[in-house]
Write a protein that binds this DNA or RNA. Structure first.
Lengths: 220, 220
DNA sequence: TGAACTATGGTCAGTATATGACCGCTGGTC
DNA sequence: GACCAGCGGTCATATACTGACCATAGTTCA
């Protein structure tokens, strides 16, 4: 209701408008090709105004990635609330993960590079921390789901959690890479989801076979 | 999409916010007791800013009245589109008229004063013109409805249109005055609408009686 | 190879918008 | 009729916005 409050609110709105405009452009073209001028135009502002709200082009970019990561984090956080089965929970997690990157291919590119060589990425520190934290969180959840599967007798009791957790994680990233880096244009979301489902099915069947053969130490 | 366009749009929004805040206050208290400072606070602006958008308190007031009048004008304009009967059309017009003033008692006060002594009101010229135009339009519509009633045999053929038009007009204003000037707080809208309906019923029955007695020259 | 050109992130002097202390006037009080 | 309170309206100051400009890094071409 106040006056100070109104100005604060309007400042926040303007920051969001910039973020929204930038997000769309970055998603379409990646970081480099997007000019600050183009962000300004899309947000119906002048270039100078952009710098009243953010210190650099990179800061805008970072903010977008951070908020995307947070959104993902929120979505997977309540994944284990009431799963009917471990394989269903895995499937849900995989779908969330795929949707996430369909929505921000650039972030996936960064994440993949990050996984390969952490040290020389030169990312802003907070973004770096966020990625590490969320990656660990995601891997942790996969492990929890596997553990849950073991507990309810869905997966063999001898399952090596760490190994299979890594297997799932690797497979997810592998399949998504395959699709996203070989042309997003002609890959409809359903296709990617379908491949992921197929991959997970194979993985889960592998676990069940292992159990019958009593060699259930994982597929890695 | 442009930059100039955004500023224009924001200016318009701010003007509307001021109008909206002012409208509420003027409706509650009338013109005099409302301070520019209070309008500014309600619109989450400083007093000085108000004068960036309007030249005076009076201008704000006038704009509100003008837009109210325009809204009323729009509503009654398509009144004669497809009426089932003349008495129903009269009833609809009466209800629109009552709602109009329930929504802006101050305007009604001005209008009544205006009808009694036009010359010494000292209203801004455009407001003056608007009131004259809309009043004439309203009276004209009443006359048209009566004519329509005569044509379809609902009212006697000998009906004096001008006299009865004035009768309806006077009755409407009289009843509304009665209610609005004797305390709006304890007069629910339904009560006023009820009185209006009763008044119109009496009027219309009078016309019908006139017809059977072949003295249908109106009730005035 | 290096001079000339181009494109773009970031800056800053100038402009537009917003603020609230202040002024002059009016109507009321004693 | 001197004093006061309260309000419409003003204006110096502060904040927000703009786009011409600067520095630099990459690119072209002689």
């Amino acid at each position: 209701m106040g006056l100070e409050e109104r100005r604060k609110r309007e400042r926040e709105n303007r920051k969001n408008a910039i973020l929204k405009a930038a997000r769309k452009l970055f998603f379409e073209k990646g970081f480099k090709p997007v000019t600050v001028e183009s962000i300004a135009r899309k947000a119906e502002l002048s270039k100078g105004s952009i710098y009243l709200y953010y210190n650099s082009k990179e800061e805008i970019y970072t903010q977008i990635l951070l908020s995307d990561i947070d959104k993902f984090h929120d979505r997977i956080s309540d994944l284990l609330q009431n799963p009917s089965s471990a394989s269903e929970a895995l499937m849900r997690l995989a779908n969330i993960y795929v949707d996430f990157f369909l929505n921000d291919r650039e972030l996936f590119r960064i994440l993949m590079t990050f996984m390969l060589h952490t040290s020389d990425m030169n990312l802003p520190e907070d973004l770096n921390d966020h990625i590490v934290k969320t990656t660990n969180k995601t891997i942790g959840i996969i492990e929890q789901v596997l553990k849950y599967g073991v507990e309810r007798g869905e997966f063999p009791a001898t399952l090596n959690l760490r190994q299979n957790r890594n297997a799932v994680w690797g497979m997810l990233n592998g399949i998504i890479s395959l699709h996203l880096f070989t042309g997003i244009e002609d890959r409809r979301a359903e296709v990617i989801h379908g491949t992921i489902k197929a991959g997970l099915d194979i993985f889960i069947r592998g676990l069940e076979i292992s159990e019958t053969k009593e060699t259930g130490h994982g597929i890695l």
